[in-house]
Amino acid sequence: MSEPQHRVRARFTESTVTVYQAYRPELGLPAARDGRFPAAWKRDRMTWIKPSFLWMMYRCGWATKEGQETVLAVEISREGFDWALEHACLSHYVRGLHPDRASWQRELRRAPARVQWDPERDLRLRPLPYRSLQLGLAGEAARRYADEWLVSVTDVTATAHAVHALVRDGDLGGARALLPEERPYPVGGLAHLGVREG
C-alpha cells in the first residue's frame, strides 16, 4: 500500500508520543540525566520536534554535526502533541488551503506551533517520495512542551551511532532492526495542515 504524501508517523503508546531533538552535550546530557530540560534551555525560542528518527538522523548527520552531538528521544503526552497539531499553522503558504497569503501570514504570527512537511528519509538518508512531520513550538507551546507535556528524556546517541555503523557496513537489515517502530499516528481534523486522511 503506498504512503500518502502527508502522514504523521511516530512511536507512540496509549498516552505518549516520542519525538526527537539533537543538542550540544552541555544541554542534551543534563536533560537526559534529569529527565527535564536544564535552565539553559530557552523557553522563549522556537524549538523543533521530529517524530521521525531517520529524519532526525538526516538533520543531525547521525549525531556528528556541531551543536547536535546528543540525540534525545523526548516522550511527551499525546494530549500535548495533539494540542500542538490542532493549534499549528503550516510554515508555508498553500494556494487553496489558505484564503490568501495575508491571511496565512496573520495565522502564522498568531499560531503557537507550525508544521513543516519534509521528505522522509531511508536508512542511507536519501529522500523518499512522501513527507515527514516537523513541528515547531513557540511561546505557549514551547513552555507547555518543557513544563507540562514532558514525560521522559532519553539519550539515544549510542543508538544513532550503532545504526550508522551498520549502514556503513552495508548491514541494512541489522540497522533496520535497531530503529524505533514508527506507525501511522491517529489524527483527525488536520486538513489545515494538508493532511487528507484520518
Rank of each mutant, 00 (worst) to 15 (best):
R124Y: 00
W41F: 15
H161N: 07
Y185I: 03
C89D: 07
A138D: 08
V187E: 06
Y130M: 00
S77K: 12
P30W: 10
V94E: 15
Y145D: 01
D169A: 15
W55T: 01
P186C: 09
R36G: 02
A158R: 14
E66S: 11
T64R: 14
R121C: 07
T13G: 15
L190D: 04
T16A: 08
A40E: 15
D122L: 09
L90G: 07
T157V: 08
W62H: 04
V94N: 05
H161E: 12
R59I: 03
L133M: 05
H164Y: 12
R110T: 10
M46S: 12
C89Q: 13
L108R: 11
Y58S: 05
Y93N: 03
A177R: 13
A111C: 05
L150K: 01
W48A: 06
A31T: 05
E26H: 09
L85E: 05
T70S: 08
T64E: 11
S2P: 12
W104R: 03
S15I: 10
A146F: 03
L29D: 13
D34Y: 15
L97K: 09
P186M: 10
V156T: 02
D155V: 07
L128K: 14
G80Q: 04
E120M: 07
H6Y: 15
H6M: 05
E197G: 11
A102H: 13
L193H: 06
E26Q: 14
L27D: 03
Y145S: 00
G170N: 08
A73K: 01
R183V: 12
A31Q: 04
V187D: 05
D147W: 12
G198A: 15
P127Q: 06
A165R: 13
F81N: 04
R7A: 14
L172R: 01
E148N: 04
R109K: 14
R176M: 10
V187Q: 07
